[in-house]
């Protein structure tokens, strides 16, 4: 099993997300992440779905997605030149001044952005590929991660 990235263009209608997620649950396919948003055409949404599958299951996933009436296009970005980004918000424990300084340093050196500083916590934003997000999480773990939110991956094929 491995992660594959599918970029699926669907009609921007109510119930489409339910159709897609229902398809995954009914057929026992595994979703690692799913991100949905409008495209340049407001009538079309793009779903970026990271699927945990083997080649045979992936083939079925693509065909079943395509079979949905509201699906316009299924693009398999796996192994292609792509630009991938995920957004992470992470709230870290920072109740001591010494710890605060260390966390700010981590943010500075990794290029992550501090978006909120509270009395006892610091919230950091990071946008990047999977590697970058994971690396930041690892660096912040020792300080105590209180809450974390990830958008799931979005991706576009590269024009290189």
């Amino acid at each position: 099993m491995a992660n594959f990235i599918l970029s699926v263009l669907v009609e921007n209608k109510f119930g489409v997300l339910a159709r897609v997620s229902g398809l995954f649950s009914a057929r026992g396919f595994n979703i690692t992440s799913l991100a949905v948003g409008e495209t340049e055409d407001p009538e079309i949404s793009r779903m970026t779905i990271v699927v945990d599958a083997d080649e045979r299951i992936l083939e079925q996933v693509k065909k079943q997605l395509h079979k949905l009436i509201d699906t316009i296009k299924v693009l398999d970005l796996t192994g292609k030149e792509t630009v991938e980004r995920e957004l992470l918000l992470v709230k870290v424990n920072a109740d001591k001044t010494s710890v605060r300084e260390k966390i700010i340093k981590v943010a500075d050196t990794t290029g992550a952005k501090i978006v909120d500083i509270g009395k006892k916590t610091i919230t950091i934003e990071e946008a990047g590929d999977e590697h970058r997000i994971k690396a930041l999480i690892e660096l912040l773990k020792p300080y105590g991660i209180i809450e974390m939110a990830r958008t799931g991956k979005v991706a576009l094929s590269s024009d290189k």
């Binding site: 079925q60 065909k63 079943q64 395509h66 079979k67």
Partner: peptide
């Protein structure tokens, strides 16, 4: 006629 039937 249904591609999803093939090699299922």
């Amino acid at each position: 006629i249904d591609p999803s039937s093939v090699s299922k």
